[in-house]
Design a protein around this nucleic acid. Sequence first.
RNA 1: GGCGGCGUAGCCAAGUGGUAAGGCAGAGGUCUGCAAAACCUUUAUCCCCCGGUUCAAAUCCGGGCGCCGCCUCCA
Length: 488
Amino acid sequence: MALRVYNTLTGKKEEFVPLEPNKVKMYVCGVTVYDHCHIGHARANVVFDMIYRYLKYAGYEVTYVRNYTDIDDKIINRANRDGIPWNELSERFIVEFDRDMAALGLELPTHQPKATEHIPEIIAIVARLVEKGHAYAVDGDVYFRVATFGDYLKLSGRNLEEMQAGARVEVDERKENPMDFALWKGVKPGEPSWDSPWGAGRPGWHIECSAMSMKFLGETFDIHGGGKDLVFPHHENEIAQSEAANGAPFVNYWLHNGFVNINSEKMSKSLGNFFTIKEVLKEYDAEVLRFFLLSAHYRSPIDFCDQNLFEADAGLERIYKGLAEIHRLLATEPGDGGEPADEGRELEERVAGVRERFREAMNDDFNTALAIAGVFDLIRLVNRVVAEVPLPGSRLRQLLEEARTAVGEIAGVLGIFTSLPTEYLERIKLQKSAGLAIAAEEIEALIIERAGARKEKNFGRSDEIRDYLLMRNIELKDSPQGTTWTVK
RNA sequence: GGCGGCGUAGCCAAGUGGUAAGGCAGAGGUCUGCAAAACCUUUAUCCCCCGGUUCAAAUCCGGGCGCCGCCUCCA
């Protein structure tokens, strides 16, 4: 089955056909670097990281561009408020962005251009638009003339009249049309500026993405991504600028990820209900967060709340426990424990089909929820086989090995289950232990005492110790290898 | 007001014509001294409601109700 993607431009799922066979050119709007990234940025970037990885897995040679918008009103305002130079602020938050993305386990895009390093390219596009009559200069500003671009609003499916009727913004009398937007902003006192044919000034928002995508990907490219909120005006304006300037189609497939809500409410600064990535990663492991973000389809809204993160944590732990079991078995000497006919055959079929199932899910507009369900199915079957055949023979061992490899490949695309299972479980245990009112040494000592009591069949004392620990959120697990503990 | 989306078990969540994936939580069972983990069974006669199309609809069409997003900076 071929890859199908939902294209915002057509409102339909379409078969993905790249401009050049086996090559994909993809641009994703990065961030305006004026503050720490929040959980919404995490989703957008994790989603497109997953898409980037899957396209590569599917055999495409991908050129992935993600920009930094490092000059903008918000940067200037914030820098003024903090009393620091604007570029000091933007540079600082570029570093912070990179840190957050690294913490989330993202792969680096092919290119990460900055707006301020492309001022000549920006000016060139604006000049061409003015030349072609698609833009006009007023008092040092340059505006895009929306009336000259017949396809304006084709992405968001609106029309100009209705937009104007519902407009909530003050009308700038200098604009020919209230919907005309700034390509270039004339300098104001105390603001950074660059020389241009229209006087000193700086780029408007939107134009930097047209300039950088064109430079790295050409006039027409395959995929442009970003959050749903960028459809209008940002992406709409990018289309207008780029297509009017080049006279060529800008992008073939527009992909937009859904929002993150917080406890079912829209995340917003006025409600004060947003979390930065750094805050969230103090509470939850990055892999748990990533698992949570990929457990729903990328276009659906997703609700960030303790219950859902708890479920993600539990689900991920289940998979890692299964993987840990495979690792443990394969590290032991081969047994002659037989090859149970039914389970063996079922496992054989499941392992043989797991990649195909994964591809089918991902080919359907990157259905990561379905892809993850496939992993759960495999893990359940592995657990069953392992429970029934404690010492698997060579054929079963081979199947387990193959299962591990297949999950490893899937893990590489999703960016989850990528840790060594025992390391992950240990990491989670450690993190959860931090909040305990009991020291690990005390727990260990009690486990030793309990082992003694059990040896003497003093189950009263044994259970007393277990209950004592359970009240402190410590769960014990007895096995032939001894007793281990986990944090509930 | 305009545009778009959503409504599937206690919760999260797949599923766009063929008779309801997966996870979390719950119940029963196997295992265990008892537990935990794991496994097995079980939890939606039905997919917001009402009509219609069809041999067949959660899936298509019409109407209604409810929720949400965008239209202003925003992933």
